[in-house]
Design a protein around this nucleic acid. Sequence first.
DNA 1: AAACAGGTGTGAAGTTCATCACATCGTAAA
DNA 2: TTTACGATGTGATGAACTTCACACCTGTTT
Lengths: 242, 242
Amino acid sequence: MLKIRKRVMTMPNTTKVTHSIEIKELLQFADRTIHVKKGSYLFQEGMEAEELYLILGGKVQISKVTQDGRELALRICGENDICGELTLFTDAPKYLLSALILEDAKIAAIRKDVIEKEIFQNPSLAFEFMKWMSDHFRKTQTKFRDLVLNGKKGALFSTLIRMTNSYGVHKDTGILIDLPLTNQELANFCGTSRESTNRILNDLKREGIISIKKGKILIHDVEFLRQEIGCENCPAVFCSID
Amino acid sequence: MLKIRKRVMTMPNTTKVTHSIEIKELLQFADRTIHVKKGSYLFQEGMEAEELYLILGGKVQISKVTQDGRELALRICGENDICGELTLFTDAPKYLLSALILEDAKIAAIRKDVIEKEIFQNPSLAFEFMKWMSDHFRKTQTKFRDLVLNGKKGALFSTLIRMTNSYGVHKDTGILIDLPLTNQELANFCGTSRESTNRILNDLKREGIISIKKGKILIHDVEFLRQEIGCENCPAVFCSID
DNA sequence: AAACAGGTGTGAAGTTCATCACATCGTAAA
DNA sequence: TTTACGATGTGATGAACTTCACACCTGTTT
């Protein structure tokens, strides 16, 4: 049974702000464009890192695999997102995470040395890149807070809210998360077991907060989820999964 | 009772790398230098953010207070650390976190507009700043992993290890964390209750892993803590609390 | 010396969560 | 259609963690 905590009324989120106009400029420095099939890896943890990637289409999941075989999913990147960025500005050129293709993708590869040099010479690009890093950092930090402070239920609610901001499609009955997700995949984002995730989702279904159609989650009452985790309604740029 | 998991042998950490030589350059753009007393706040969540700060001496704890009054501690900054950086490159000029002075501090305040302009005009500074942001991001991300995947004990172990990297003083019996910390303060870093933290610390004492002298923790066996959380022995730049 | 305050130590009870075990469901292949 | 397989749903059990309650300890004030 869900316990609803009483909360002060909150303001609605602002709409999603993308950096696509600026970040897209990176495309001109691309070394090559590649097509990668669902199920394969764009890169894997420990691999020599010489490039970073700009997603042109498709979906890529960034995750970390632990020594004991568990997986912690961190992001799902789509069009105009950047990944492999963590290896920039460092002399240890190994990928720290793995990038699994969820949906056939078209990706521009940009050499690290090229982008580093370009950033160095182009203040405007440097500025945009810093802005992106800064936004990206806040996403991680707010997610951190949600997962650490609000237990496993908080982790799941936070993940769902973020997914609506990144991949939500507005319907008249609510917001559809346009990603095919299994319970296990969702659990990997929360650091929970598949069973716990399943139980919480079923509680939400019974309460009419969500429903599931063909493996995709439709959220009828996002506000409920927000209130449960004490959401401060930060702009959607800082509350997304990409 | 502690349960010791078997782990593969790991390599020792590299020594701490600081960015002080480069980041210190920011000092020339400082607007003013201020002295702040223990117990007061450098800034608080929600306050108008017009400056960021370079710590010249003393200690500052960065934390987030939740709606229901709990506190999540994120960093302890000391000499040459930067704080208030999250408000850069954004139009919503409010501090997102609070900065409590733990130890009388001398701090240089740098106006946001000045630093942004300077970064824009000085590629070398921009580059160093990005490097710093990038390192800082990885700290957060590895901490995230430790806290989400390894339970509350993992959170505490991770926090202790990070503290040895930031404020550890090598003694012949181990590494002394040179910070006066109460159980509650430590718990705030881990998202746990004071009691849980106390119990885990006492287990560690009984096993001879740590001992406590005058409110400061002396760690005899850091390697044990590392193995328990499946530490990958990343460089200390990415495994610290500052 | 007595009183006080903030921090520590610990049992007991209750909640949350992971794990195991197994039934069911839906879809795609044989 | 039957079989097979991956995903879902759910009880039971135990471990991890929080919460409450209170004793104790230590240094400081009166």
